[in-house]
Simulated assay, not measured.
Amino acid sequence: MRTNDAQMLVLSALADGPLHGYAVNTAVERMTGARLGRGSLSGALARLRDKQLIEYLPGEGRRRPVRLTDAGRSALGRELNALADVAGQLFETVVPDRIAYQERLNGTDQARAYQQVLLDALDARPGQHLLDWGCGTGAALPALARAATARGRVLGIDRDPRMALRAADLAAGLPNTAVLRADVHRLPLAPGSADRIRTDRLLQHLADPVAALAEARRVLRPGGRLVAAEPDWGTLAVDHPDPAPARAFTRHLTERIVRNPLIGRRLPRLAEESGLAVRAVVPVPVLFREVRAADRVLGLQRNTERAVAAGYLTREQAGEWLEHLARGPFLAAVTVFVVTAEKPGPGPVGGVG
């Protein structure tokens, strides 16, 4: 960890009052998930004392308490205010409601681009039984219902009760379309009962994607098809003159925010290992040229603040990073992989008879 990072973590740890050295490191661990090394902690304390940003209280040995001076509290406040000022000018500071976020994302040009690739790969036919795993608010259900026609069936599946309720309201106006609240790791569906499974950005959040893929194989008919669209967050690139904060932002996202951040690149292998035959892998670049649009999807300010708290960025780096992104020109990109896999064996490619 760089010296300035350690110093800012110590200042942040002392914001609520005096602590001795061991307790400082405990507070740092709560913020970041890791303790400072002995050399990093002692070095940070010595430098902060030399700058008169901290002072020691009466005590003995390593249990001697240390606290912020007025100058130290002011320095920490300036860092917080600088970041807040930049954020308040442009970036979204409140975590959006999950339903609002899903509806917002599905309405973007970026989502429409790869979702069309997903729909084309699904190749749903009249009379088929179609499943939409992680259907969310049900945005894809109308297109699936049109593809299956009144001869087929469409079932949206979501574990979240609010999402399922919103999707059910939409499904009520569609022919032979329903919504099931269930966990895709273990579905109350008969083996071989589905012709097609569509899933969009679901596997990245699952506790066990391998178990879900095995469940897909179980519920598909022989010759049935799974098409999954998943981002690979390791490919996230945000342009900045200094590559260090951009790399730190991406590293924090992949290590702390997303449960399965590299699922995009891993999905073809995991599908094969689950007994599915991978027929196609299509990488779809998702490009952002406008910072507000990117922020509404990537949570630039919110996740930058989290990265600071976790020690991936200093507050000074974060402020400069967000200020530059706000000034523009802006460019960010991430790759979404659309993977088509089938259950081996003969099976009808048209209707279900």
Rank of each mutant, 00 (worst) to 15 (best):
L36R: 01
S40D: 15
D16Q: 14
G21T: 14
T26L: 14
R38S: 15
V28P: 00
R38C: 06
L36M: 10
L19Y: 02
E29N: 10
Q7Y: 00
L45A: 10
Q7T: 07
A13N: 05
V28A: 00
L36D: 04
V10M: 02
R30I: 02
R35P: 02
Y22M: 13
A27F: 01
S40C: 08
A13P: 02
M31E: 11
G17H: 09
G43P: 06
A46I: 10
Y22I: 11
A34N: 08
V24H: 05
N25I: 04
R35N: 07
A34P: 00
L36F: 03
R35V: 03
L14K: 07
M31L: 15
V24L: 11
S40P: 07
T26K: 13
E29T: 09
L41T: 04
G33Y: 02
T32G: 06
G17A: 09
G39V: 15
T32Q: 04
Q7F: 01
R38D: 12
A6I: 04
L36I: 03
A27S: 13
V24P: 06
L36S: 03
A46V: 12
G37I: 01
G37T: 11
A6Y: 01
D16L: 12
A15H: 11
R38P: 12
V28D: 00
N25T: 05
A46R: 15
R38Y: 09
S40H: 10
L11G: 09
Y22N: 12
P18S: 10
A46E: 15
A23V: 06
H20A: 10
D16E: 15
L9I: 00
A44V: 06
A34E: 12
T26I: 12
G37H: 08
A27M: 09
L14T: 02
V10N: 01
L14N: 02
G21N: 10
A27V: 07
T26S: 14
A34I: 00
V24A: 05
T32R: 07
H20P: 11
M31A: 15
G39P: 08
G37E: 11
A44W: 04
L11K: 07
A6E: 03
R30D: 12
G43K: 08
M31H: 12
V10P: 01
S12Q: 14
G37F: 02
V24N: 02
A15V: 04
L41P: 07
L45E: 07
V28M: 00
L9N: 03
S12M: 13
L36A: 03
V24E: 04
M31V: 05
H20Q: 10
V24T: 05
G17Y: 04
Y22E: 15
M8C: 03
G21K: 14
L9P: 01
M31P: 01
R30A: 15
N25C: 07
L11V: 07
P18Y: 03
L36V: 03
D16T: 13
Q7H: 09
